[in-house]
C-alpha cells in the first residue's frame, strides 16, 4: 500500500493513515445512517440516502482495510478460517460484511422496518468495534480507560450530522451536532486525563509533541470553529466538522503507538 507521508515523525506504527481514514469513514457514514433512522424514519427518502452514504463508506473503508493487510489476497481467511469471537478483528470483519448487506437491503427496501433496525444495530456495532479493537490491545493509551467507544460514538454522531447537513441543513441536525460536539470534547479530555498516568508519552505527544498539529488542529479547526460557524454557514461548519472527525481518529490511532 502507498505510504502516506503526513507530518508524523513517530514512525514504526503498525496501524497508520489508512486505518485512521477507515475509522473516520465508518464513523461518519455509520453516524449519518443511525441519525437518519433515529430522527427521520418518517422520511424514507432521507433514510435511503443515508443508507447509501453509509454503504459507500463501508465498502470504501473495507477496501482500505484489505489493501492495508500484509497479504491482501488472503482477506477471505477472515471469513473462512473458523470461529474466533475473542478476536475483535474477526467480529469486526463480520459486522462490516453484514452491515454492508443490511444497508444495501435498506437502500432497496427503505420501508421495511426490519431492514432499518437490523442495519442500525449492525452499523452501531461497526462504529463501536473500531474502539473495542483498540481497547483490546496492550497499548496503554487505548486500554487505560473504557472511554474510546464513547468517543467514537459521539464523534460518529457529530460527523454523521455533518454529512446529513450537507444534504439538507435543518435545526435538529444543528442541535445534534453541537450537543454531541460537547460530549465528544468532554469524553476526550476525560480520556486524556485518566490515561495520563499510564500513557504519559502518548498524551504528551498529543499536547506538545509530534501529534500536536492533529490534536490542536482538531480542537481549533474541527471543533471550535464549526460550532462558531454553525449559526452562520452550515456548509463550512459541516465540512470542518468532518475534517475534525478525521483528525480525531488520526491522532487517537497514532498516539496509541507512540
Amino acid at each position: 500500500m502507498i505510504h502516506v507521508n503526513m507530518p508524523n515523525p513517530i514512525g514504526g506504527e503498525h496501524w497508520g493513515f489508512w486505518i485512521a481514514l477507515y475509522f473516520f469513514l465508518a464513523g461518519a457514514g455509520g453516524g449519518a445512517y443511525l441519525l437518519s433512522v433515529l430522527y427521520a424514519s418518517e422520511s424514507l427518502r432521507r433514510v435511503r440516502q443515508a443508507a447509501m452514504m453509509a454503504f459507500l463508506a463501508v465498502v470504501l473503508g473495507s477496501g482500505l482495510l484489505v489493501l492495508d493487510l500484509g497479504q491482501p489476497l488472503r482477506f477471505l481467511n477472515l471469513f473462512l478460517s473458523g470461529f474466533y469471537p475473542s478476536s475483535v478483528m474477526w467480529t469486526g470483519s463480520w459486522f462490516l460484511l453484514l452491515a454492508g448487506a443490511a444497508l444495501l437491503w435498506v437502500f432497496l427496501r427503505p420501508a421495511s422496518r426490519a431492514a432499518q433496525l437490523s442495519a442500525a444495530l449492525l452499523v452501531a456495532l461497526v462504529v463501536s468495534y473500531t474502539a473495542v479493537l483498540l481497547m483490546a490491545t496492550a497499548k496503554p493509551f487505548w486500554n487505560a480507560t473504557p472511554l474510546l467507544p464513547w468517543l467514537f460514538l459521539a464523534s460518529a454522531a457529530t460527523s454523521g450530522a455533518a454529512l446529513l447537513q450537507l444534504l439538507e441543513p435543518n435545526e435538529r441536525l444543528k442541535r445534534v451536532l453541537v450537543a454531541m460536539a460537547f460530549v465528544e470534547l468532554g469524553v476526550l479530555l476525560l480520556h486524556l486525563l485518566w490515561a495520563y498516568p499510564q500513557a504519559a508519552a502518548s498524551v504528551m505527544a498529543l499536547l506538545a509533541g509530534p501529534l500536536a498539529w492533529a490534536f490542536w488542529g482538531f480542537l481549533v479547526l474541527g471543533w471550535a470553529l464549526p460550532i462558531w460557524l454553525e449559526r452562520r454557514t452550515h456548509l463550512a461548519a459541516a465540512v470542518l466538522t468532518l475534517f475534525g472527525a478525521f483528525l480525531l481518529r488520526y491522532f487517537i490511532v497514532f498516539a496509541g503507538q507512540v
Binding site: 433515529l38 483490546a136 460514538l153 459521539a154
Partner: peptide
C-alpha cells in the same frame, strides 16, 4: 485480551444506550 475486549463491548453497549437516549431527547 478477552477481558479487555469484554470491557470494551460492555462500555460500547452502555455508551450506545446513553448517547442514543440523549440524541432522542435532543431530537424529540
Amino acid at each position: 485480551a478477552e477481558k479487555r475486549a469484554g470491557t470494551g463491548w460492555l462500555s460500547a453497549g452502555i455508551a450506545a444506550a446513553i448517547l442514543g437516549a440523549g440524541l432522542k431527547f435532543i431530537v424529540e
